[in-house]
Simulated scan of single mutants.
Amino acid sequence: MFTGLIREIGVIEQVRPKSGGAELQVRCEKLMPSLHRGDSIAVDGACLTVTAVSAKGFCADVVAETWSRTIIRWYRRGTKVNLEPALRVGEPLGGHLVLGHVDGVADVVEVQPEGDGKTIWVRPPSSLSRYIAEKGSVALNGVSLTVAAIEGETFSVALVPFTLRETNLGDLVPGSRANLEVDVLARYVERLLGRKVGEEGITLSRLEELGFTARSSSDYRGSPAEL
């Protein structure tokens, strides 16, 4: 479990193909005193397990599913990556609940300067659009962000100067790709309501099935003043 607050920008030293996935060698400094073999760490929002550590960084395996679903397959030596260690009990939840399970790759379509910050317009995979709501939460490359606006197939996020300096989102340009994780709450709501793509949305009959049965005034047994 993570919260979408990046602790360090690491650098990819090596990508070794391995069993349909890869092994990453990542260089970093600030996290190393507290990072151990077996720990979970989010690399651009993808939860990986640390397999080895050294004074200058760590190694982590990437399974085939993660390789095919994330931007990791485009990593090269020198690629900058956002790093966040797993959230510990008692630590502040400064962003939102980020699982580290990347849902897909989003395309950056426009970058607009906004004073010292930037507004970035992103096109998510069409299958994920329904989980994105204005003022809701998303994670781009592991960074917890608020959806500023939605227009057609795209949505925007506002990046403050701190985020531009302390994460790799400051390097995004039109044509860039970013790992996208939608808010897990949206997925659970969909699951609980039993709604799938192409199905009818919330209806009175569906609410009744779930126990939210509306009562008319004729069913009410209280006094008129209580109606």
Rank of each mutant, 00 (worst) to 15 (best):
T49H: 00
D103H: 12
V182N: 02
L159Y: 12
S129Q: 14
P124Q: 00
C28D: 12
G45W: 07
E200A: 04
E84K: 00
I72M: 04
S54G: 15
G57A: 08
T146F: 10
R165F: 05
E199L: 12
L93A: 15
I41Q: 09
A133D: 03
L140P: 01
R165P: 02
V143K: 04
P33Q: 09
F155D: 05
E110L: 10
A225C: 02
V173M: 10
P124Y: 00
A42V: 02
T119Y: 06
H96M: 01
V98F: 09
E134G: 06
V50C: 08
I12L: 07
S137W: 13
K56Q: 14
E226R: 03
L193E: 14
V108L: 08
G117H: 09
D107W: 08
T66E: 02
L192I: 10
G152M: 01
V53I: 15
V105Y: 11
V102E: 12
V182F: 11
G95D: 10
A64F: 04
T213C: 14
G45A: 11
L207W: 01
V26N: 05
T49P: 00
K18I: 05
E13P: 00
G38M: 04
E166Q: 11
S137T: 10
A60H: 04
G198F: 03
A214H: 12
D39T: 08
T163E: 06
D103C: 03
G152I: 05
D44L: 03
A158C: 11
E166R: 09
A225G: 15
A52M: 02
Y131W: 06
A22S: 06
I72T: 06
T213H: 15
I72D: 01
S40R: 06
V98E: 07
H36I: 03
E13S: 13
V197P: 05
G104E: 11
L192V: 08
N179F: 11
P85G: 05
L193I: 03
L87S: 01
L210H: 10
G100R: 00
L210Q: 09
W121F: 13
V102L: 03
L145N: 05
V105G: 03
E151S: 15
G117S: 07
G104D: 10
W74M: 00
V102S: 05
L97W: 13
S205Y: 03
T3A: 05
Q25C: 10
E208A: 15
T51D: 10
L24Q: 07
R7S: 13
R73M: 01
A225R: 14
S34T: 14
R16C: 04
P33N: 11
L204K: 07
G175Q: 09
R88A: 08
E91K: 02
P113F: 12
L24K: 06
E110I: 02
I150E: 14
G104T: 09
V81I: 14
F212G: 01
F2G: 05
E91C: 00
K56E: 14
C47A: 14
H36G: 09
T49G: 02
V182G: 01
M1Q: 09
L128H: 04
N179M: 03
R187H: 13
L83I: 00
E208T: 08
A52N: 15
Y75D: 02
G10Y: 11
L145M: 02
P92F: 00
W74G: 00
R69E: 08
S126D: 14
A133G: 04
F155R: 02
L5N: 02
V63G: 05
I9W: 00
G94W: 11
V43G: 06
K56A: 12
